[in-house]
Design a protein around this nucleic acid. Structure first.
Lengths: 191, 191
DNA sequence: AGAAAAATTTACCCTATGGTAAGAAAGCTA
DNA sequence: TAGCTTTCTTACCATAGGGTAAATTTTTCT
């Protein structure tokens, strides 16, 4: 919980009332590997701040293939934001890849923090701006880089994630099959 | 200019001082087809609100191939947000695909609106939230759909854009070559 | 309108990645 | 630690989409 408070304080002044409010609407929880925090097809009520471990969000296509949208580790937020912001049922599933500690929020209550403590608007706007930048970069990378180049970049960007994930998770993030990733890894070692 | 004011008013209450401020930091301009508003490698000072016409932002990869990040038509914003929010030089180019009318803002001045008129925080946060949702969807579509499926979806999502764009613009948005798009279009007609 | 330039289509072959399947390795559980 | 389950690797062939180039069509410019 300290992690979250510190993260917020590093970016805005946090009054003690606001800090109190955050405590009042959140709950620290532990989940074990494989547990599902948000399930496709169900209403999305929660947003999670990760304090330990590793989670991912993914969708399942019409052929049953999984596609990873996001990996979340310490100090990242994760939810199905498509569902949260469009008020639809979840199209994503959020699962734990390792035993994880999270701070759980009701998404609507968390959103209400902006009305009550306007200083959060600017905090949230900056978060969203940075997130938009990373999404723009990911789209451009997907358009212009080959699979081996995307894998190299992934390893640079998430040097710590590989220890928590299976190869097929990474493949499904890069947009390739696990067989292709396996071949790419072999080629890398050869060089 | 009315378009922008109305768009803002549809989402927040706009005081006359705030409206005045917007006027004071903006400038209505016309650009002709082919003109470049933001050029890769240069500092990005401007953000544009489109009131007429069609623009796109794209990057050029190491082989000289173009990759389109965004098409912007009436009532959309366009800039190089990667550069704006990271204070780096432009990695994108923004060009007019048709003769276009835009409202030009100095990006920093526009950002200052939040400090001066806090009611804009919430407006901007909602914009960003919706933008994040559309980017999440685009990433998932790119991961799970075939090229013909992505093209069909593009036509649904941007029914009006095709009249303004060349096929190779669309191909470079979908992540395929124009030859592939041409084949896909032939197949569609056959059915 | 006519000429020039640019974009599109088509055809050819090529390559990266996908799909299936089987065996090997790693990880989990009792 | 033995046995079971899951993941990874490898090999095979299949296929979607890429690259080049030439012919055709469309757009632009004067």
């Amino acid at each position: 919980m300290k992690d979250l408070i510190n993260k917020i304080k590093s970016s805005i002044d946090l009054t003690s009332e606001a800090e109190e409010f955050i405590y009042s609407i959140s709950e620290e929880k532990k989940f074990s590997k494989g547990e599902v925090l948000i399930r496709e097809g169900q209403a999305v009520k929660k947003t999670f701040f990760v304090t330990n471990g590793c989670l991912r969000s993914f969708c399942v296509d019409k052929n049953g293939k999984e596609h990873t949208l996001l990996f979340a580790i310490k100090n990242w937020w994760i939810s199905d934001y498509i569902a949260v912001h469009t008020d639809e049922l979840a199209t994503l599933t959020v699962e734990c890849l390792t035993e994880s500690s999270v701070i759980e929020f009701n998404a609507k209550e968390l959103d209400g923090i902006h009305a009550r403590f306007p200083e959060f608007e600017s905090y949230q706007r900056h978060n969203l701006e940075r997130h938009v930048v990373s999404l723009h970069k990911r789209i451009l990378n997907q358009l212009q880089l080959s699979a081996p180049e995307r894998y190299d970049l992934f390893l640079q960007q998430y040097p710590d994630i590989e220890q928590h994930t299976r190869n097929f998770h990474i493949a499904s993030y890069l947009g390739i099959t696990q067989q292709s990733l396996s071949r790419i890894r072999v080629e890398k070692v050869k060089k």
